[in-house]
Simulated assay, not measured.
Amino acid sequence: MRTLRRKRGPVQTAARRSWVRRLAAGVSMALLVPMTAVVAGTTAPAAAGFNPAAFDFWVDSGMGPIKSRILRAADGNTNRVVYVLDGMRAPEHLNGWEIETDVPNALARANINVVMPVGGMSSFYADWNAPSEFFGIPGNGPANSGSGAGNALSGGPGKSYRYQWETFLTSDLRNALADRLGFNRHRNGVFGLSMGGSAALTLAAYHPDQFSFAGAYSGYLNISAPGMREAIRLAMLDAGGYNVDSMAPPWGPQWLRMDPFVFAPNLVANNTRLWIAAASGLPTGGDGPNMNTVNGMALEALALANTRSFEVRMATLGARNVTYSYPPFGIHAWNNWNDEALRMIPDLSNNIG
C-alpha cells in the first residue's frame, strides 16, 4: 500500500491544519447539495474536445444500440485496454473525458487502447432493478436535459427501458471489442470519476477475469454510510431526474453489492491493482469564485470522507494492492481529475495486458 503525498509549503501546511474543521463543514454541505460532477469554473486542457483520431463503436445491447468512442494505442497493440468511465451527467454524444481533458490522448501515447462508453447519466454503470419512474409514472416527456428535478417525468435513457450497464460493459461491449477489433478480453483496466469511480471498483470486484486494474477519483466508496443514500437520491434527481429506488431497493442485497466498503474483500482476494484518489476540497488557483466552486468543495469533502473510510476498511483486511493519492488542493472538478489521471497512468500501464 502506498500513499502519495506532495511537498507542502507554508500556505499548504496552514490549510492542512484546518483540514478536520473544513472536512466536517464540507460533509454537512455535501449532504445538502446535489452530488454531481461539476466543472468548477476550470479551463479544460487546450487539446480537449472532439478527437478526430477516435472513432464511434456501436454495439447492440439490452438497452438498444450503445455508442463508445475508441482511441487506438499509438503502437497499434491490441493487448492493453482501459475503459474510461464518466460522471453523473454523462451526455449522449461524447464521454466527458474526451470533452473536458486530453487524458485519452495521453493514454494512447502510453500505448494503451482507450474505450470511452458514451451515456449512462446517473446510472452508476449498474444493472438497474427497473426503468426509472416516480409513483408508477414512467418518464415520457421530452428527453432529459440533464439539469434539475424537473426532468423526473421526462423521457430519455434509462426511463423507457431498464439500465443494464454492467452487463453491457462486461459482456456486450467486451465481446464486440474482442471479436471486431481483436482487443484483449482479460487484464483490462477501468477507471472513472465520482459515479464512474465507484462503478470502476464494482466492475473490478465482480469481474476479476476482465479487470486487473481499477481507479477511482473522488468516488463514493461507502454508499451505505448514514445519509449517503439520500445524498445520492438528490444527486440523481438533479442529474436528469432519476429515481435511486429504481436502481436498487434500499439496503437490500442489490444496494449492498454496489457498495465498495461492503465488497472490499473481493478486491483484496482478487489482488486487483487499485488507484484511489480524493483531494482535500480546498480550491486551486484555477477554481473561480463562484457557486460551482462552492459545490465542488463540498462534494470533494464528501468524497474524501468516503475514501478515507474505504482506506481504513482496506487496511483492516490487510490490503497491499492499493495506492492512495490525496492532493492537498483540489475540488470535485475536471482539472483535479485530469491531473490525477496523469499521475496514475504509469501504474495503470504496469498492471494491464
Rank of each mutant, 00 (worst) to 15 (best):
V118K: 06
F134D: 01
P131A: 07
I137N: 01
A149G: 08
G141C: 02
Y125F: 14
G158W: 06
N140S: 13
G156Y: 14
E166I: 04
N140Q: 15
V118I: 07
G146E: 10
N105E: 15
S160T: 13
N111T: 10
S122F: 11
A106T: 10
N140Y: 03
R109K: 14
D127P: 12
S154K: 05
N144F: 14
S160E: 06
N105R: 12
W128F: 15
P138L: 03
W128K: 13
P131Q: 09
G136E: 03
N129W: 12
G139C: 00
N129Q: 14
Y161V: 14
N144R: 15
F134P: 02
N144K: 12
F168N: 01
S122M: 05
K159C: 11
A106I: 08
A130F: 14
S132M: 06
A108E: 12
M116A: 02
N144A: 15
G119C: 07
N105S: 15
S123V: 08
A130C: 13
A110H: 09
P138Q: 08
F134Y: 14
G158H: 03
W128R: 12
G119H: 05
A108F: 09
L153P: 01
S132C: 06
Y125W: 11
S132N: 06
W128V: 12
Y163M: 11
S145G: 15
A106C: 11
G150D: 02
F135H: 03
M121W: 08
Y125L: 04
N129I: 02
G148T: 07
L107Q: 00
A106F: 09
G119T: 05
S145P: 04
G148Q: 03
A143G: 14
G136T: 05
D127Y: 09
G119R: 06
G155Q: 08
G141W: 01
G136C: 02
G120L: 04
N113M: 11
P117R: 01
N105H: 06
P138K: 13
K159V: 11
S147K: 08
S154P: 00
I137E: 02
W165P: 01
A149F: 11
I137L: 07
G136H: 03
N129H: 15
E166M: 04
I137F: 07
M121S: 08
N113L: 06
S122C: 09
I137W: 05
